[in-house]
Simulated scan of single mutants.
Amino acid sequence: MSEIIKQLDISIMGREFRVACPESEEATLLQAVQLLDTRMHEIRNNGKVIGLEKIAIMAALNMTHEFLQTKVPGGIDIGSFQRRIDSMNSTVDAVLQEQTELF
Rank of each mutant, 00 (worst) to 15 (best):
Ser2Asp: 14
Ser2Gly: 06
Glu3Tyr: 06
Ile5Glu: 06
Lys6Cys: 07
Gln7Ala: 14
Gln7Leu: 14
Leu8Asn: 09
Leu8Tyr: 10
Asp9Ile: 03
Ile10Gln: 00
Ile12Tyr: 05
Met13Ala: 09
Met13Lys: 03
Glu16Cys: 00
Glu16Tyr: 01
Phe17Lys: 04
Arg18Glu: 12
Arg18Gly: 13
Arg18Ser: 15
Val19Asp: 04
Val19Glu: 09
Val19Leu: 13
Ala20Phe: 07
Ala20Lys: 02
Cys21Val: 11
Cys21Gln: 05
Pro22Val: 05
Pro22Met: 02
Glu23Met: 04
Glu23His: 09
Ser24Pro: 01
Ser24Asp: 03
Ser24Gly: 11
Glu25Ile: 04
Glu25Asn: 13
Glu26Met: 01
Thr28Asn: 10
Leu29Gly: 05
Leu29Ser: 05
Leu30Ile: 04
Gln31Tyr: 09
Ala32Phe: 06
Val33Gln: 08
Val33Thr: 06
Gln34Phe: 06
Gln34Met: 04
Asp37Ser: 07
Asp37Lys: 07
Met40Gln: 11
Glu42Arg: 12
Arg44Glu: 13
Arg44His: 14
Asn45Pro: 00
Asn45Ala: 10
Asn45Met: 06
Gly47Met: 03
Lys48Tyr: 13
Lys48Asp: 08
Val49Leu: 09
Val49Gln: 08
Ile50His: 13
Gly51Val: 00
Leu52Glu: 00
Lys54Gly: 09
Ile55Cys: 04
Ile57Asn: 04
Ile57Phe: 08
Met58Gln: 11
Met58Lys: 12
Met58Ile: 09
Ala59Arg: 00
Ala60Tyr: 11
Asn62Lys: 04
Met63Gly: 04
Glu66Gln: 14
Phe67Ser: 10
Leu68Arg: 15
Gln69Ile: 03
Gln69Thr: 04
Thr70Tyr: 14
Lys71Ser: 13
Pro73Trp: 10
Pro73Gly: 13
Pro73Ile: 13
Gly74Ala: 07
Asp77Trp: 08
Ile78Met: 09
Gly79Leu: 03
Gly79Ile: 04
Gly79Asp: 08
Gly79Cys: 08
Ser80Asp: 01
Ser80Ala: 08
Ser80His: 02
Phe81Pro: 00
Phe81Gly: 00
Phe81Cys: 05
Gln82Thr: 10
Gln82Trp: 07
Arg83Val: 06
Arg84Gly: 06
Arg84Asp: 14
Arg84Leu: 10
Asp86Met: 06
Met88Gln: 15
Met88Thr: 12
Met88Ser: 11
Met88Cys: 09
Asn89Lys: 06
Val92Gln: 14
Ala94Ile: 05
Val95Ala: 14
Leu96Met: 12
Glu98Ile: 02
Glu98Phe: 02
Gln99Glu: 14
Gln99Cys: 11
Gln99Met: 15
Gln99His: 14
Thr100Ala: 14
